[in-house]
Design a protein around this nucleic acid. Structure first.
Length: 106
DNA sequence: CGGGTGACTTTAC
DNA sequence: CGTAAAGCCACCC
């Protein structure tokens, strides 16, 4: 695989690999990229990525399973809505990580 | 080159 | 429970 691309592009690749009905965290993605201490870059990347890519960004949540990025979507309700549509269960406002957490493989 | 900007995470008050 | 701050680092202007 291409590993010479910029950080953002790597994020795209990983997001694209998230299986249907699963979710992963910014921290796991960062770790997979060798930068576990900079999970926030993943978020920043997704923010930019959302503007130039068609990926399931709704499958990326924070460490608590909370949809911290939903406010960056055109419709804040879309994110949780899309996840539920994939069979993902919620505990209040957070994704049930015990059932749907996906360890990033890179 | 330098400063601003976070869809994070953790600790602290 | 809420806000603050610090550590972190690629991208953008």
């Amino acid at each position: 695989m291409k590993r010479d691309e910029n950080f953002y592009f790597k994020v795209y690749e990983i997001v694209a690999k998230i299986p249907y009905g699963k979710v992963t965290t910014y921290g796991s993605i960062a770790k997979a990229l060798g930068m576990r201490s900079s999970a926030r870059l993943v978020g920043t990347a997704l923010r930019s990525a959302a503007d130039s890519a068609d990926l399931p960004f709704h499958r990326v949540v924070n460490r608590n399973g909370l949809l911290t990025g939903k406010h960056s979507f055109p419709d804040p309700d879309y994110m949780q809505n899309a996840l539920k549509a994939e069979g993902i269960t919620f505990i209040d406002e957070a994704v049930d990580m015990k059932k749907h957490f996906w360890e990033v493989e890179y």
